[in-house]
Nucleic acid binder design. Structure first.
Length: 943
DNA sequence: GAGCGGGCACTTTTT
DNA sequence: GTGCCCGCTC
């Protein structure tokens, strides 16, 4: 048996890229199950939601293959599986013990935007107060010549963005060295107090609160023993994934939870159970410094575990790499052994341990050097064009391993990994020019890009002038750039809508804004919205704030979208609604598991966490990788948190704090490079621009320094660790192998495959999410009215079933619901008539009583998730009534039908109903039968 | 080494 | 639109 599977021991595994980390985690989890642990007593903490679902998937896959009995047993208990993010876990603790913690049990987590709004408000109010008694920061600003509200609030915001650290400094009373820093923190603490009060009033938490409060709850609260005990009772084993990205606070939480176990006096040991903790991670893949990831945590855990647990602890450093071919392994070892030398010792430094390749075959690493042009932009252009050409010359020529079989590579095998998105558009252009299909894996959704968001808010407001929030966003946006100070003053003035408040303002900027905006509202009455947006952009000169090509493109795309909606005849309110929904549905990241999509993927290095690709392209290596310093630095060192503030960037260079932070960031850049390189399975191509007679810069310097590729600025031809090519060579192969010529090429020799060992590879399972909803277009078939009616009927049914409304109130309620759906008064009256008639019929036939009205053991709008193979279905079941161990499922179809259509409709919904039935059987553990309930025609069809 | 003006480039992102 | 770096002067 592998040592890491020994469930009598706690384990830390240092598991580098491609060494089967997820597999090990899943195997350990299974070992615990096999060892008799109950599923609800194992807690597994992952970094993201995605990682959590992957972990579940992987575990089930192994079980399905190797232990069918256990597979079925566990599948039954899937909902009890505790595989979640640390935030979800903390939230659960807080909810569960809300009474003991003095929190409102209905507490909820705020989204980012609302949190930032509440925060800005708090800053504003605190500063107003401070202005009246200027003993703190304003004096200091005056002395230093720092002017302006925005500057000051930006310092506070900067500090706040580094939460939870500044909050911890205050709460834990850390020693603060400088006078200025003390003043800043004092001011910050006032803002924070206000912010906290505001959250309390609204029963809201932000993401940082989850960890902070959970930690306080278990560490300091008088009730903590209770909580610990009950946690203890429910958890025997903890597993943590991506441990290198754990923050100090997260570690403190885990540490506290396991304290009792280690001390050996816990009740568990007496009862003969051995609780364990299992940590997997790779120091070299820690790339979330900006989010508080603290590498020392990993180091510390290793040391303290052996101290505490002695022989009941096992440490393992995996060397084997199952992902990459030897050429890539050799290159990686060569590069990073020097870049991350094991001899340097500071706990935040990265130390490299060389890989052992396990895959057989060659692989290829190449470096394409571009003759540097005048500007960065030009360089990126030349580079992108070379990259596109290189891709074209590889297609149909280069062979990669697909499992054990060799085949020609395709676009879908390739990924371009960027450090940042700045020059994204340049790469897109180059690929487009070559006709290469590609998909960009985006970070934030289209609708949340600042330029799109600004236009979206503007439209929202013009369509509904009572929408203060949208107006606020518009006024803050670069179109008007009105300061917080001015705006908050206005907001706090009275009860009338914001637009009326700004009318009376004496501030010139606000006045101008008011005039422009009212002009637009007037215009919108007789001008298409798309045209209006174009005008807005030219009138305000808005274009110039979005100078980047990508932003221009986004703006154009948005205007086009609106144009489309208008040409399809949607009303303004429709469009507004559509925008709100589109934004909610914007999944942000395009799904890169779009299997079967033969396209090159473009993404940031950060986004590749946990992914791998047969062929990886790494452009812009010459880019400067020294991060810009910020004027505030918060740093951790062995439990101490320190803070430093300095406006002057020249002075910063001489201050220890800033220097060390910089060192840490440079160290992280190296790790990012490591992550990028190790994504490649078979082929790695790097690109960069080299200035003549100047030493290489950025990551190019790393390669040059460490592997002797360049000698005195000249390329060293002796290098066999990677193939170096220049632009003319790229052109040459491109022209001889252009895809149009590929067809004429003879097929390559059939490959005599030696059996190679490729598993267990950390292969990413493909999980597809599908919403189970109406898939025939009701609008097309039955018209707009029935779409609206469908939504209203469903709401009414749900509210009736849940007892929210009484049958007497149907008419009143339907008017309110209809009003939200359609602005037209005549429409409301007409639709209301249809609803009333329908309900009369439902009452007469008894369906209202038998199906819809509240009863024992029944559910309405029950949400579910159901996994079938690689697909996770999610949806809501309209109505379930359980009687005598049998669940009856009703799916409401509210549109009118003819009896002759019934057979066809039944077929159409058979699959959907089948999913519902399985889901219900699983959730409620009873047999189920399902009915389509056509409420207009009063037909009940069993499936 | 401080003080300037011109030139140039403009993070990463999860809960 | 900013803010930073570099090179120049004193």
């Amino acid at each position: 048996m592998e040592k890491y599977l020994d469930i009598t021991k706690s384990v830390i595994i240092s598991s580098p890229a491609g060494s089967g980390k997820t597999e090990k985690l899943a195997r350990r989890y299974i070992s615990l199950l096999l060892g008799g642990s109950e599923i609800e007593k194992i807690l597994c903490i992952t970094f993201t939601e995605k990682a959590a679902s992957e972990m579940k998937e992987r575990t089930m896959k192994i079980l399905e293959k190797e232990n069918l009995d256990l597979f079925f047993k566990i599948r039954e208990k899937m909902p009890l599986m505790r595989i979640s993010t640390i935030h979800a876990f903390c939230f659960k603790i807080l909810k569960r013990f809300s009474m003991e913690l003095g929190l409102d049990p209905s507490l909820d987590v705020m989204d980012e935007f609302n949190a930032s709004l509440l925060w800005s408000e708090s800053v504003y109010e605190s500063l107003i107060e401070e202005k009246d008694s200027p003993d703190l920061f304003f004096e200091m600003m005056k002395n230093r010549g720092i002017k302006g509200w925005d500057r000051l609030s930006s310092i506070l915001n900067d500090l706040h963005s580094r939460r939870p650290h500044p909050e911890l400094i205050l709460k834990e009373n850390h020693f603060i060295e400088g006078e200025e820093e003390k003043k800043i923190l004092e001011l910050y603490s006032r803002c924070l107090r206000r912010y906290t009060d505001k959250k309390l009033e609204r029963h809201l938490l932000d993401f940082d609160d989850l960890e902070l409060l959970a930690y306080e709850a278990i560490a300091k609260n008088t009730e903590w023993q209770n909580i610990l005990y009950s946690f203890d009772e429910h958890t025997d084993h903890i597993l943590v994934d991506e441990f290198q990205d754990t923050s100090s606070l997260q570690w403190k939480i885990i540490d506290k939870l396991t304290e009792e176990w280690r001390s050996g006096i816990g009740s568990k040991r007496d009862s003969g159970k051995t609780p364990t903790i299992f940590l997997v991670g790779d120091e070299k893949q820690s790339i979330y410094l900006f989010r508080g990831a603290n590498l020392s945590v990993f180091q510390e855990a290793k040391e303290r575990f052996s101290e505490w647990l002695g022989r009941e602890y096992h440490f393992e450093e995996v060397r084997k790499n199952y992902r990459s071919l030897p050429a890539i392994i050799n290159f990686t070892n060569n590069l990073f052994e020097r870049l991350m030398p094991p001899t340097l010792y500071e706990s935040w430094r990265t130390r490299y341990a060389p890989f052992e390749a396990t895959r057989q075959g060659d692989g290829r690493v190449e470096l394409i050097l571009i003759d540097a042009a005048e500007s960065t932009k030009e360089n990126r252009g030349k580079e992108a064009s070379a990259l596109a050409k290189r891709i074209q010359s590889l297609i149909g020529h280069y062979e990669i391993f697909d499992g054990e079989i060799k085949r020609h590579c395709a676009y879908g095998d390739m990924a371009i990994l960027l450090r940042k998105r700045t020059h994204l558009a340049t790469f897109e252009d180059a690929l487009r020019k070559e006709g290469i299909p590609f998909i960009v894996v985006k970070g934030i959704g289209f609708y949340d890009e600042p330029e799109v968001a600004a236009l979206r808010e503007l439209l929202s407001f013009i369509i509904d002038t009572m929408d203060d929030y949208s107006l606020f966003c518009v006024l803050r946006s670069p179109f008007f750039g009105i300061e917080y100070e001015t705006l908050f003053k206005l907001i706090h003035k009275g009860d009338q809508p914001l637009i009326e408040k700004i009318q009376s303002s004496t501030n010139k900027k606000v006045k101008d804004a008011f005039n422009l905006i009212t002009g637009w509202i007037e215009k919108s009455k007789h001008t298409p919205l798309a045209v209006l947006l174009e005008d807005v952009l030219s009138e305000t000169g808005g274009w110039r704030y979005y100078w980047e090509k990508q932003r221009h493109a986004n703006i154009k795309k948005f205007i086009k979208l609106i144009e489309q909606y208008e040409s399809q005849g949607f009303s303004c309110l429709d469009i507004r609604e559509k925008l709100i929904r589109a934004r909610q549905g914007d999944e942000g990241k395009a799904n890169i598991n779009t299997e079967g999509m033969n396209a090159v993927k473009i993404m940031t290095v950060h986004a590749t966490k946990g992914l791998q690709f047969p062929m990886v392209f790494l452009p812009s290596l010459d880019e400067d990788n020294v991060p810009k310093s910020s004027h505030i630095v918060i740093d951790e060192d062995g439990g101490k948190i320190s803070i430093a503030y300095e406006e002057d960037s020249t002075k910063r260079k001489k201050i220890e704090h800033f220097l060390r932070r910089r060192e840490k960031e440079i160290e992280e850049e190296k790790r990012l490079f490591y992550v990028a390189v190790t994504r490649a399975r078979d082929f790695l191509c790097m690109l960069g621009a080299l200035k003549r007679e100047k030493p290489p810069t950025g990551r190019l310097a790393y390669i040059a320094d460490t592997s002797g590729i360049l000698k005195d600025g000249q390329i060293n031809p002796e290098m066999d660790i990677l193939k170096i090519m220049n632009e003319s060579q790229i052109d040459e192969i491109y022209f001889t192998r252009h895809p149009s010529l590929v067809a004429r090429h003879l097929p390559s020799e059939p490959f005599m495959a030696e059996p190679i060992y490729t598993g267990p590879i950390a292969y990413e399972p493909i999980l597809k999410w599908r919403d189970v909803t109406e898939d025939i277009d009701i609008r097309v078939k039955h018209g707009e009215d029935w779409l609206v009616l469908g939504r209203v009927f469903h709401r009414l049914f749900e509210e009736l079933s849940k007892g929210v409304i009484h049958p007497d109130e149907i008419e009143k309620r339907s008017i309110i619901l209809l009003r939200d759906e359609t602005p037209n008064k005549g429409n409301i009256e007409r639709l209301k008539e249809i609803i009333t008639k329908n309900f009369e019929k439902l009452e007469k036939s008894g369906f209202l009583r038998d199906v819809i009205l509240p009863k024992e053991n029944s559910y309405a709008e029950l949400p579910f998730m159901l996994q079938r193979g690689n697909t996770i279905f999610r949806g809501r079941v309209d109505r379930i009534v359980v009687k005598d161990d049998m669940a009856t499922i009703y799916d409401y179809k509210t549109f009118p039908i003819k009896d002759s259509e019934l057979p066809e409709l039944t077929e159409k919904y058979r699959f959907q109903m089948e999913i519902y039935r399985s889901a219900v059987e699983k959730i409620l553990s009873v047999k189920a039968k399902s009915y389509l309930f056509f409420t207009h025609a009063q037909r009940l069809i069993e499936l």
